[in-house]
């Protein structure tokens, strides 16, 4: 790891001021340090070399509170994944979120990693993570995964980069229609998670639309019908401690046997958590059945084209989605 300076500002505004003009390239600039579980690996691998780290863990304006209120559930950006996993209210009202947090990483990483940092973590693509490879996402010309070892990569071709977003909680939060509260030099704004994440594009080679001088303050889950249920399923290459090959988050409410509300998100299929609107359209208003779920699963993957080595993700994603829906509606799996 290269040398850097360490600063502990007294206020969030002071921290944000330090971010002004911060570059997003390899060298220089200022980075915020909270849990550090992604930041330090990026630095250890020499993918970034900031001049300064700014500790934001002890700022009064940021917290790890998980609070339910009229506006729904508000989660402070510093809440750790372990706190999400263990919070009794989250467990009872948003088990999908507790499950997603609990399936992420390991106990130690969940004790360290904050929700804000989890949303902002960079892809695990092994080309991106190799300092010897100057890939498109790092400012180069070529996505090496496209024609290379892309078994872990995206099904949806929506960016020059085919890395997948690694977060588990983000997929659950997308299915919960969560919103992100950001603070910048001119105050706060709240945007949907769906617009917070965006596949990287020329001029914005990162996975979010957050400005370089903005800080995530909180994540809010709007209130929802008490009967809505959610589930998060994750397929890994081993039984634990791996990033999702594919994951599915589904939130659903039945009313008189019909699907009154449904929200479906997929992980491991795109550079950003994927909102499967096509599947929702198939499902909403319909009566639950194995056949319906199969059609929804097909719809969810509409437009998904396999790379040379990730074709297995298509049946995998469909199977996970069918199972999630069956689980939520009490249908037999087969």
């Amino acid at each position: 790891m290269r040398a850097f300076a360490y600063a502990s500002p007294r206020s969030l505004d002071e921290a944000i001021a330090l971010l002004d003009g911060a570059g997003d390239g390899h060298a220089g600039g200022t980075r915020l340090l909270a849990g550090g579980t992604d930041l330090l690996t990026l630095m250890q691998a020499d993918l970034i070399a900031p001049e300064r780290l700014v500790d934001i863990k002890r700022l009064a304006e940021l917290d790890d509170r998980i609070e339910d209120g009229a506006e729904g559930l508000t989660i402070g950006a510093l809440a750790t994944l372990a706190e999400l996993e263990e919070d009794p209210f989250v467990q009872s009202r948003y088990p999908i979120l507790a499950e997603a947090a609990g399936l992420a990483a390991t106990p130690q990483l969940r004790n360290m990693a904050t929700l804000g940092g989890n949303l902002l973590q960079r892809p695990r693509c092994w080309y991106f993570r190799d300092s010897r490879v100057h890939c498109w996402l790092k400012g180069g010309d070529l996505c090496y995964a496209r024609g290379g070892e892309n078994q872990h990569h995206a099904l949806f071709d929506v960016s020059p980069c085919v890395a997948v977003h690694p977060s588990d909680p983000a997929v659950a939060l997308l299915a919960l229609d969560a919103r992100v509260r950001l603070r910048g030099p001119s105050g706060e704004r709240e945007i949907s998670l769906g617009s917070f994440f965006a596949p990287p594009e020329d001029g914005r080679r990162k996975e979010t639309t957050q400005a370089d001088n903005e800080v995530i303050v909180a994540v809010r889950i709007p209130p929802r019908h008490a009967d809505a249920r959610g589930v998060y399923l994750k397929a890994m290459e081993r039984k634990a401690w791996a990033f999702a090959l594919v994951s599915v988050a589904a939130v659903l409410r039945l009313e008189a046997g019909r699907i009154a509300e449904v929200s479906v998100a997929l992980g491991g299929v795109a550079p950003a958590p994927w909102h499967a609107r096509d599947a929702e359209q198939v499902l909403v208003g319909a009566e639950s059945s194995a056949d319906l779920f199969a059609r929804a699963a097909d719809a969810a993957l509409t437009g998904a084209g396999a790379l040379a080595k990730n074709g297995y993700k298509l049946p995998l994603a469909k199977a996970l989605l069918r199972r999630a829906l069956a689980d939520l509606t009490g249908q037999p799996v087969d």
Partner: peptide, 15 residues
């Protein structure tokens, strides 16, 4: 591409 313990999977307790 996986000269590490993240992408070179070895069994965990769960395996």
């Amino acid at each position: 591409l996986n000269a590490n313990l993240e992408d070179y999977y070895v069994p965990t307790v769960a395996d």
